[in-house]
Design a protein around this nucleic acid. Structure first.
Length: 479
RNA sequence: CGGGGCGUAGCGCAGUCCGGCUAGCGCGCUUGCUUUGGGAGCAAGAGGUCGCAGGUUCGAAUCCUGUCGCCCCGACCA
């Protein structure tokens, strides 16, 4: 329950986040260190996210399937970079049914290996391709420093795994998914993102190309919010995914994988949230509007509830996800704060004065306090609220985009870059060498985020070493 | 691996040094009455093997021994 005030974001952003996740009723700490319990309110939000993504994947020809949680440890040793990348983070099962296992089993940290193994059995001919499978589930990585939604030992996601007959088709798939992710962030989550390839050192273990979408949080740190990888034939060779092509030649398949996780909820919290609590984008909010009836006695209650019930039914019939807050053990003031903490986009307040005037008070969550409160007619309320919801959706994206853009700067020189990334993002030419990237990481604690796509033809010099460069990259401190 | 801290009600804590009456406090919870347009008040209640095991003692949350778990700092690793 939202009994206490949050620390402000400016006071302690990290503590603000930790308390908000619990107080907004999204999640709770589990008895196992680093694990979280996603509560019904948080899961409802996740379901809205997953059902939109699931719809897009199906529209583009993908199908869902389920692979096992347990993977033979030996599978991880088949791809060199993959095992190096993941072995420190593996949870390993060594005992089953009271007996020591002959082959240790890993609780999946990601499923390329077991899916690759299965694909090798399923793919014989060019006619078997492409395979476009998505798995929805959870994975486990033994993280040292955890934070609810952002980095937990177990987290929820979808992982797409596709196999194709040639590189062009696999690359096209990687970018197709990246576009879906971008569309999701912009249109659903109201989070502006940059999409593009990651640097070599920031690639997924085993990938030839890793692309990402990158978002700026309120504290100006970057959060990788989704990834789409092209493996070339790396995993096909490790797992022997081969087929006979149209020319009757044996050939390795080209594979991809991609994911958005429950971490995206952390992104929404840190992009839109304010000092009063969560601010959810209307398109994903489990509750889009809440009705709060206000009365002093039974006589008023009867009159107010009559209107409140009618309003509730009307909004519900209009397809708005609506909740009636008829709790009688807490005050109206408590309810206002409570729903603000939970990020509900619109609050409909109905009191005795409204019953008289035929009005209701509408409070929009993105503008807290008096500024966001208006009195409107009960007549045509469902369309008023629908309009307001879409206005809030647009305004959240606009606000987040302006904030982000105001905090990205183009450094004049290397010293300038160091200054900028201390409190913002730097956008600069980079020669794409590992040395220059490592230098920035060491000296400025900032990593390259990605090289945004669709850059114009241009010539410049690397911000670090001064060598000629054609593409700019974002540098930022990241989560 | 080294150093430090903490385990007492759902949550946050006091009490432990210096053993002693029925183990307290705040929040939350239950019930009732009054309240409700920006985080209500009063009253009466419920809730505890004091992390676990053993020991000392007439008597242990408190002293001793062992043990488990968690947190912080450093080192190591990336």
């Amino acid at each position: 329950m939202a009994e206490d005030k949050l620390p402000t974001r400016a006071e302690d952003f990290s503590e603000w986040y930790n308390q908000l996740v619990v107080k907004s009723d999204l999640a709770d700490y589990a008895p196992v260190r680093g694990c979280m319990v996603v509560k019904p309110y948080g899961w409802a939000l996740w379901e809205n996210i997953t059902s939109w993504l699931d719809g897009e994947f199906k529209k583009t020809g993908h199908v869902n399937a389920a692979f096992p949680t347990l993977i033979p440890l030996s599978f991880f040793e088949k791809e060199k970079e993959h095992v190096e990348g993941f072995s420190p983070q593996l949870a390993v099962v060594t005992i089953g049914g009271g007996e020591l296992l002959e082959e240790k089993l890993v609780v999946r940290p990601t499923s390329e290996t077991i899916i690759g193994y299965m694909y090798s059995k399923w793919v014989q001919s060019w006619r078997d391709l492409p395979i476009l499978i998505v798995q929805w589930g959870s994975v486990m990585r033994w993280e040292i420093r955890t934070k609810l939604f952002l980095r937990t030992a177990e987290f929820y996601w979808h992982e797409g795994h596709t196999a194709h007959a040639d590189a062009d088709e696999a690359l096209e798939e990687m970018y197709r998914i990246l576009d879906i992710y971008e569309k999701f962030c912009l249109e659903e989550a109201a989070i502006p993102v940059f999409k593009g390839p990651k640097s070599e050192s920031e690639r997924f273990p085993g990938a030839q190309i890793t692309t990402s979408i990158e978002a700026m949080m309120w504290d100006k740190r970057a959060l990788q919010s989704g990834t789409s990888h092209y493996f070339g034939t790396n995993f096909a060779k490790a797992f022997d995914i081969k087929f006979l092509n149209k020319k009757n030649e044996l050939q390795f398949a080209e594979t991809t994988s991609w994911a958005i996780s429950s971490r995206i909820i952390g992104a929404m919290i840190m992009v839109h949230g304010d000092d009063h609590g969560l601010v959810l984008p209307p398109r994903l909010a489990p509750i889009q509007a809440v009705v709060v009836p206000i009365f002093k006695n039974d006589d008023e209650k009867t009159k107010v509830m009559e209107v409140a019930d009618r309003v509730f039914a009307e909004l519900k019939a209009a397809g708005i996800r609506i909740k009636m807050d008829d709790r009688d053990n807490v005050s109206s003031g408590f309810k206002f704060n409570d729903w603000e903490m939970r990020g509900v986009p619109v609050r409909v307040e109905i009191g005795p004065k409204d019953v008289e005037k035929g009005s209701v008070a509408l409070a929009r969550r993105d503008k807290p306090g008096r500024e966001g409160k208006t009195f409107v007619s009960q007549t045509g309320l469902s369309s008023t609220v629908s309009l307001l919801l879409s206005e809030i959706q647009d305004s959240l994206l606009k606000r987040a985009t302006e904030y982000r853009d105001a905090n990205i700067h183009e450094p004049k020189d290397y010293e300038d870059l160091k200054r900028i990334v201390a409190d913002g993002w730097a956008f600069a030419y980079w020669c794409e060498s590992l040395e220059c990237e490592a230098k920035v990481k060491e000296e400025a604690k900032a990593t390259t985020r990605n090289i945004p796509m669709n850059q114009p033809d241009q010539e410049g010099v690397c911000i670090v070493c001064g060598r000629p460069s054609k593409r700019k990259v974002y540098f930022a401190r990241a989560y």
